[in-house]
């Protein structure tokens, strides 16, 4: 594709050189005019806070005791990384990330494909599937909490019914780490799979249906068509969906906060940052944890880019 454009340009360049450089000049100023505002907002609301957080993370600084502020260099980081609670939160976070991502990807792809193919109740289907996404996270967490609680919910009753009474009606889902995590993951999957399928659907729409037909005529199986034609053609959309869901899931906060408040070893990294800065007002330590979280996210993004062999900053081809 790029060669086609390049040759087109070079042939046009001869006679119309002056005009082209005009265009280039116009593009330069227009480029800055269009990207500039977004860039400035970004610098103001993101870059500056990061620099500020890194600066704060080097101090032992408690909001209630401003005079006791002390420069400790990397002391906060050493303390944080030496704390078993940090590693526990780290493991919990990644269990949630991996489990939800796998299920969301498979379900999201399935739903996107069904939405792409099915004609009759398409509009209703798309609307219904996307409803959970429109529910406020805090509230969806509340409703799952309510449904899973043994004194108000229906989970135990359903399980009791479907196992012909073998399931304990008073099973406490929030009494242990794994059952709590299961409910957290379930509600997270329920809530965000629509997001996944929406992004994947936009990608699916760009797969050339003629190519798929051709593969079908050539006798490719359903699985072959999926893995050899559909998925490679929507690689960009797939990558964006996976990357964003991962980055979002790593920062999971509202959901476990409502469900368990971090009890039974369900504390996530994001909640750890929250308790340090908001509850304990240890701004220095909280900032250090936030910076660590940021670095983890950066590392994940880096691994994804390498794994998918996608050049995030790259231009055409």
């Amino acid at each position: 594709m790029s060669t086609a454009i390049d040759t087109g340009r070079s042939t046009a360049a001869g006679p119309k050189k002056a005009k082209l450089s005009d265009r280039a000049r116009g593009e330069r100023s227009l480029g800055w005019k269009l990207a500039g505002p977004a860039f400035l907002v970004m610098l103001f609301v993101t870059l500056y806070p990061i620099v500020y957080a890194i600066y704060l993370s080097l101090f032992n600084y408690r909001l209630t005791d401003p005079t006791g502020r002390r420069f400790v260099f990397l002391g906060n980081y050493v303390t944080a990384l030496g704390d078993p609670l940090f590693w526990q939160a780290f493991v919990t976070t990644f269990i949630i990330v991996i489990v939800t991502l796998i299920f969301e990807l498979i379900l999201g792809m399935g739903i996107a494909m069904v939405m792409n193919k099915i004609v009759i109740p398409r509009r209703t289907l798309r609307t219904v599937v996307l409803i959970p996404y429109s529910i406020i996270t805090v509230v969806s967490a509340f409703s799952w909490l309510y449904a899973a609680k043994f004194d108000t919910g229906f989970f135990n009753h359903w399980l009791n019914f479907f196992t012909f009474g073998a399931w304990d009606l008073n099973y406490d889902w929030f009494g242990g780490r794994w059952s709590s995590l299961l409910i957290i993951c379930l509600s997270e999957i329920w809530k965000t799979t629509p997001f996944m399928s929406l992004l994947l659907l936009a990608g699916l729409a760009q797969v050339d249906s003629a190519q798929e037909e051709a593969a079908k005529v050539d006798g490719a199986t359903w699985w072959q068509r999926l893995t050899k034609v559909i998925l490679p053609n929507m690689k960009a959309a797939l990558m964006v969906a996976v990357l964003f869901r991962t980055l979002d899931a790593v920062r999971i906060y509202d959901n476990p906060y409502v469900m368990t408040g971090g009890a039974n070893k369900t504390l996530t990294l994001s909640m750890l940052v929250g308790t340090e800065t908001i509850d304990r007002v240890e701004i220095g330590m909280g900032s250090a944890l936030a910076v660590i979280l940021f670095l983890i996210v950066l590392i994940i993004a880096f691994i994804f880019v390498k794994l998918f062999k996608v050049d995030l900053t790259g231009g055409r081809n």
């Binding site: 920062r251 994001s270 996210v297």
Partner: peptide
């Protein structure tokens, strides 16, 4: 994109 909102 990678910045957690706890930082900001």
């Amino acid at each position: 994109l990678m910045v957690p909102n706890q930082i900001t």
